[in-house]
Design a protein around this nucleic acid. Structure first.
Length: 863
RNA sequence: GCCUGGGUGGCGGAAUAGGUAGACGCAAGGGACUUAAAAUCCCUUAGGGCAUGUCCCUGUACGAGUUCGAUUCUCGUCCCAGGCACCA
């Protein structure tokens, strides 16, 4: 064994070994229990960044650990390879999205291999290949036939810069989530997946996802946004028309004094026509259409509206209610109409104040003397109904049901449930995506491409048009198609699918990635799915995870899978953060643009001292990034992996520290030298595996420590994924082993050392797989056998030494401690505690009221 | 505003069933080895006190409470991060 640790050399050696022996290739094996470990696959942006490294290291430790525990572990990797950055890069670098994407995949695959991740590379997929998206198109056609897909003309968020539609959740504070440009409204024909049909089921199962962080299921519940209430018709005065509203507060209907419609509401034009408000209404509607939806729902946005010149009638009391259009009423939620109860809804209250509308109190707080509410805000709590006709005196909660019963009896309205979630718009006016397999025919309408004609191949010889526009629409060879149903000339759909579609079923494809007679091999999916542990960033808490749950339900309802939830357990890891450095004149600085003079960073461009800013998520814009490749180059993959796990538990944010990385490197060096000192001596030494009683004291302690370490590491990985404390435990063991001298020539210690060093190598192997394989071999074990070695067990009877440390408190304050035989009885312990000289000082002459004994740990003397 | 997390030394963090607060690592200081440096090894390191101890006091954001005993449980307050929000 080399005296010095050379990470580059040994990492190359083992990576080649694993690759040549296909060490991590797996096949379904009904005789073995499976474990499917999945990390969110990356977008091939060009380079692996440190967030990927953290994510995939966490996953790799679990995969390797479960493998050693005897599971048949599926641990695949692939590429979420369609998407806009490829188009942007193609324009910027005068290349082709396909070329750019495949080059990036090649580069990033090499980077992942250099980190020593134990993937089954035979299962690698890239979603931009026809043999992948073919099955996505196939599924689309199936969904189309089952009426799970819908084409609607609708207002969509449109980004002029990206020339594309954005989902609501892709709009951040009125701006495009990718480019940051303002989003505007545009009416387009769009394809939608009817996810709303599954809203209730998706919601209901949130509480059954016990292996998910509560924060994620809560976010999903909020996203689905169920609310129960009633739909009620308000007749429009002087016409046969009625306005239907949805309300969660039917109990306040007697206080409804006006009506608010969304600007897009179909009745707006009709009702305002011919009134003197017609002009004002048209002006307001047109102004609203220029404002993006996201802008309109901004918190800071002032509530405003316009009277439309018409009235409706409150069906319970006949009150004439003026009808307004209001910017806060949304056509996409409920019915697009709001019955406004200013006394009991803050928004309505503000609106009423602004436009001088009536405020009628109908709910009196339980213990309030006055019947009114404060005139500065609405009262939204519970209370007793007043000014409410026959319902006066009733508590408002049962009052809700009573009022709905009354509506239902009189045909005025009914119980209703509303969801915030809307259907999933999947159309993208983009080139680099999976073509939607539809042919438009003048006679037959939208006709799905027959399954035998799939895939609709994305032509890779096309180039992007000016401004990044998709070339598909102008590519005659693509567009020209004959109608599958009548044979007449038709036009192919030129929209491509949202890339969230690809990532909604890739985990199923991994089970049989080369299957070419169906979307997947049913037996393989039956064996491997669902994913036992999914690991990824919390930024995907809503969209990706919800869409995946939805897709799994679709597959379930088609009889393709027999489960509804794809991910049994979910771990959302924290972000990787680093302090920012900013120069007065040059702005944010990259670490390599910074020189340190003592503690203070200096800008290498101007030499002036720079400012250390907050610790923030690593991002190119803040320039607080580090390059994983450079680190692997300097310290080796094992050090990078070790630091990523040691610096913080996985779910927390990780603060990057160059010195911390060096510390990790030093630890590996220490382990290496420790083993190098003993390797030769222990080559043929059998490990001690007996009871600690058979050892002399100094060896016994080490032996017990080794067993304790095995237990600690096992528990930390198994129960909590707290690798940081697992690593600490091995460090403690190593510190203890380090002071033992091989030259002492002690056969008992040799046997114990062999046990302890073997254990340390095995325990660390999921975390730092290269160095441990090397050490394992040097200690005399079969080369390359470590990653298939059994995870070590520990003996309960080897965990405790035969003496215990008892601490003594007086009135809860620590006053003394002593060692005692583990089998000492309570009376002996108490007696010894009272005799302790320091304790005696505190109890002298005092009355002992009580002595509390915590077993094998502590004595508390209460005075 | 609402929903999640979180607040512990100079720093990252530990304390898994209410029982020794600060494991492990980083940084810092001191020492050994060396012609010297790097590397390595050893020691110190929450704050304060003096009687320098197997010593005492204070201390886990703040204030109360439960308990023999609270970083841990309960209530209230403050602060930080992430998510959601004109949702009728």
């Amino acid at each position: 064994m080399d005296q010095k640790y050379h990470p580059g050399k040994i990492e190359n050696r083992w990576q080649s070994f694993w690759e040549e022996t296909k060490a991590y290739a797996v096949a379904a094996d009904p005789a073995k229990e499976k474990y499917y470990l999945l990390e969110m696959f990356p977008y091939p942006s060009g380079r692996i960044h440190i967030g990927h490294v953290r994510n995939y290291t966490i996953g790799d430790v679990v995969a390797r650990y479960k493998r050693m525990c005897g599971y048949n572990v599926l641990h695949p990797m692939g590429w979420d390879a369609f998407g806009m950055p490829a188009e942007n890069a193609a324009i910027a670098n005068n290349t082709h999205p396909a070329r750019w994407t495949y080059d990036n995949i090649t580069a990033m695959r090499r980077e992942l291999k250099q980190l020593g991740f134990s993937y089954d590379w035979d299962r690698e997929i890239a979603t931009c290949t026809p043999d992948y998206y073919r099955w996505e198109q196939w599924l689309f056609v199936r969904m189309f036939k089952k009426d799970m897909v819908q084409r609607k003309e609708s207002f969509v968020n449109w980004c002029d810069r990206c020339q594309t539609v954005l989902a609501n959740e892709q709009v951040e504070a009125g701006d495009c989530w990718r480019c940051g440009d303002a989003v505007r409204q545009k009416k387009l024909w769009q394809w939608f997946f009817k996810i709303t049909d599954y809203a209730e089921d998706l919601l209901e199962y949130c509480d059954r996802l016990t292996g998910w962080p509560e924060k994620v299921t809560t976010m999903q519940k909020n996203w689905i946004g169920k609310s129960t209430g009633a739909e009620i018709d308000f007749p429009v005065a002087g016409t046969d028309a009625a306005i239907r509203v949805f309300t969660t507060r039917p109990d306040t209907i007697f206080g409804a004094t006006f009506m608010c419609l969304a600007p897009e509401h179909p009745l707006v034009e009709q009702l305002s026509k011919g009134t003197d408000q017609q002009g004002a209404v048209a002006e307001f509607v047109s102004r609203m259409s220029r404002e993006s939806h996201a802008e309109r729902i901004l918190d800071s946005h002032e509530k405003e509206g316009v009277f439309i010149g018409a009235w409706c009638v409150n069906p319970v009391n006949g009150r004439r209610m003026p009808i307004y259009i209001a910017n806060f009423a949304l056509m996409e939620y409920g019915t697009g109409a709001v019955m406004s109860v200013p006394a009991h809804d803050q928004r309505d209250f503000e609106f009423a104040k602004k436009y001088g509308l009536d405020i009628v109190v109908v709910i009196k707080p339980e213990d309030a003397a006055e019947t009114g509410v404060a005139q500065t805000e609405a009262y939204t709590g519970d209370g007793v109904m007043i000014n409410s006709g026959d319902f006066n005196g009733m508590d408002n909660v049962p009052g809700k049901a009573a009022i709905i019963d009354y509506f239902e009896k009189n045909g005025m309205g009914s119980r209703s449930i509303n969801y915030r979630i809307r259907d999933w718009g999947i159309s993208r006016q983009r080139y680099w995506g999976a073509p939607i397999p539809i042919i438009h025919c003048e006679k037959c309408g939208t006709v799905p491409v027959p399954e035998e004609d799939l895939p609709v191949v994305l032509p890779e010889d096309a180039d992007l048009l000016e401004g990044g526009q998709s070339p598909l629409g102008t590519l005659e060879s693509f567009v020209k198609a004959s109608c599958p149903s009548c044979g007449a000339p038709g036009r192919r759909e030129t929209d491509t699918m949202d890339t969230f579609v690809e990532s909604s079923w890739y985990f199923e494809r991994y089970c049989s990635p080369k299957h070419d007679t169906g979307i997947f091999d049913t037996d393989a999916v039956k064996y491997w799915m669902p994913v036992d542990q999914y690991i990824g960033g919390v930024e995907h808490a809503v969209m990706h995870l919800l869409y995946s749950r939805y897709f799994t339900r679709v597959l379930h309802d088609m009889g393709l899978v027999d489960f509804k939830e794809p991910f049994t357990r979910l771990l959302t890891q924290g972000m990787v953060c680093k302090e920012t450095v900013r120069c007065q004149t040059h702005g944010y600085l990259y670490p390599e643009e910074t020189r340190y003079v003592g503690e203070t960073p200096h800008c290498s461009k101007c030499g002036e001292p720079a400012e250390i800013g907050r610790v923030e998520k690593m991002s190119k814009s803040k320039k607080n990034v580090i390059d994983p490749n450079a680190l692997v180059e300097t310290y080796g993959a094992d050090t990078v992996r070790l630091f990523c796990l040691f610096a913080a538990p996985p779910e927390r944010d990780l603060e990057w520290s160059e010195q911390g990385v060096e510390g990790a490197f030093r630890f590996l060096n220490r382990i290496w030298r420790l083993c190098a000192r003993w390797a030769e001596r222990l080559q043929d030494q059998a490990p001690y595996t007996g009871h600690p009683a058979g050892l002399p004291e100094h060896a016994r302690e080490v032996y017990i420590k080794a067993h304790q370490t095995i237990k600690k590491v096992t528990d930390d990985i198994e129960q909590r994924f707290h690798f940081n404390t697992a690593i600490s435990a091995v460090m403690e063991l190593a510190n203890q082993l380090n002071v033992i001298d091989p030259a002492a020539d002690d056969p008992d210690m040799d046997a114990v050392m062999r046990f302890a060093l073997d254990a340390a190598a095995v325990l660390l192997s999921p975390i730092v797989p290269h160095i441990t394989e090397e050490i394992w071999e040097a200690l005399g074990n079969a080369p390359g056998s470590l990653s298939n070695h059994d995870w070590p067990g520990f003996r309960e009877d080897c965990l405790v030494s035969d003496t215990r440390l008892i601490v003594v408190q007086v009135n809860g304050k620590l006053r003394g401690r002593f060692e005692i035989d583990a089998d000492a009885d309570e009376e002996t312990i108490k007696a010894l505690a009272l005799k302790d000289p320091n304790v005696a000082r505190f109890i002298e002459g005092k009355n002992i009221r009580k002595v509390i004994l915590a077993k094998n740990k502590l004595v508390n003397i209460v005075l």
